[in-house]
Write a protein that binds this DNA or RNA. Structure first.
Lengths: 111, 111
DNA sequence: AGTCTTTATCGTATATTTGCGATATAAGAT
DNA sequence: ATCTTATATCGCAAATATACGATAAAGACT
């Protein structure tokens, strides 16, 4: 493909896409569920629950953190993670707001 | 990586992840916006608007259709596409419902 | 100091995604 | 019948993502 064309699109589109990509893997959704249930959690607990290697879980956690969906802080030798609910609210409203204004025409069937 | 482990996770997690993956690209979000604005649209119109080749747009449309987010029907030599609002509603409620039950603890800060 | 525990990161192999040109297909127009 | 138009699909190249073992780093504990 020579080059990726993501940068051509608007910032808002890129941000929403990045958000979506962060949850576009069952393992990461499963991790988020664990975090939601336990409120906060260290990496090792997730590794025990999920059928994935420690390095893989750590990598997924990093992606979720980079996307801003979770917070993480170093707690001695371990790392404590929790869900960033504010970010989730934002994503949820961004997503549902994406077509809200146009959804009035929903009755107008097509195709 | 030897093997993909998606199938290890629950169907619901896989479905939600697949949904998210469909919108995890700026080009596909842009396509959805165009479809939402025009209510229905043929492939060629999208190609004119987006800075992508016809084959690329067609491929993105296919992915959105496979994910169930849009409907498409052959209309003579062209193809008419429109948004599947029902699927969007479903995704939206699935997503926002994912953590809703646990979000009561939102005040309980951590990390 | 040395040792253990926990996690991040590196290196890697493999799989998937992205993008485009070229081609195939299918219907309408001449 | 031939040509044009519109779209899907194929084949390829390059970029990303996924997964894991091995290693590094950093704090706790003797």
């Amino acid at each position: 493909m020579a080059i990726h064309k993501k940068e051509i699109f608007s910032r808002k589109e890129q941000d929403l896409a990045a958000f979506a990509k962060a949850i576009a893997h069952p393992a990461r959704i499963a991790i988020l569920k664990v975090l939601a249930e336990k409120n906060e959690c260290i990496c090792g607990e997730i590794v025990e629950i999920l059928p994935l290697a420690q390095s893989t879980v750590s990598q997924h956690l990093k992606e979720l953190k980079d996307a801003g969906l979770i917070n993480g802080s170093i707690d001695g030798p371990r790392s404590c993670y929790c869900i960033n609910w504010e970010a989730f609210e934002l994503f949820n409203s961004e997503f549902s707001g994406l077509f809200k204004s146009l959804q009035i025409d929903q009755a107008k069937k097509c195709c």
